[in-house]
Design a protein around this nucleic acid. Structure first.
Lengths: 103, 103
DNA sequence: GCGGCTGTAAATCGATAGTTTACAGTCATG
DNA sequence: CATGACTGTAAACTATCGATTTACAGCCGC
């Protein structure tokens, strides 16, 4: 009872981790040229790779196009990451929100 | 060939529309008291209902708790809405982004 | 008519996504 | 060795945006 009623056990992965660990190495491409393809500054991509910046919808569209797997994957990863993050952050306040029964 | 290769035909619904059309009426609750339960200003809720403001992860957690159906629904609705919106907005720039083949 | 409710608009505040500029490290080549 | 191209990181700055607060106009009950 010390955890949420939702899926648990899976520590949420930041999309930057997937890029850093899997995609970029398997493509054998440098951060700079990847950023150039994305039409984004290489500094921005660096911040995503170091999990400091989130994958916004616009960024998800860029990644989805460049990687060829569509934007949903990236956005879903970010969503699960955000829900975990804000779930902790707002825990106290969420406790004060009741659940309305659909009478 | 004038449209995207992704799911189409479904005009994406803003989460505010669902709240406005379905949830609030079926609960028979006023905007003000709903906002009070959410621990959010009623002005903020109004802007979501009029589809001016997005459902952020934090807001999705509040809605999910209060409605009892979890935050994912709200966040997914918003994600599809955002992908459609930014997909149009960035259409030109996305065209210039190639797709790397996973050699 | 007056107190309390609703919807909306404006000013404001703080956070944040993104670019630009700048700097230090590395490595190949002359 | 020097120089020049490339890489990673950090700072300043801009603009946008999520959210609150304040304010105001319209309604309804009494």
């Amino acid at each position: 009872m010390t955890d949420t009623p939702l899926k648990r056990g899976l520590p949420p992965l930041h999309p930057g981790a997937l890029l850093r660990e899997d995609i970029l190495p398997s493509l054998g491409i440098s951060v700079s040229s990847f950023a150039a393809h994305l039409r984004v500054s290489r500094q921005m991509l660096h911040r995503i790779l170091s999990e400091e910046a989130p994958v916004t919808p616009a960024m998800a569209l860029r990644l989805g196009k460049l990687c060829g797997n569509g934007p949903e994957l990236w956005l879903n990863l970010q969503a699960r990451y955000d829900l975990d993050r804000y779930g902790r952050e707002l825990a106290k306040e969420l406790n004060e929100i009741p659940t309305l029964n659909a009478a």
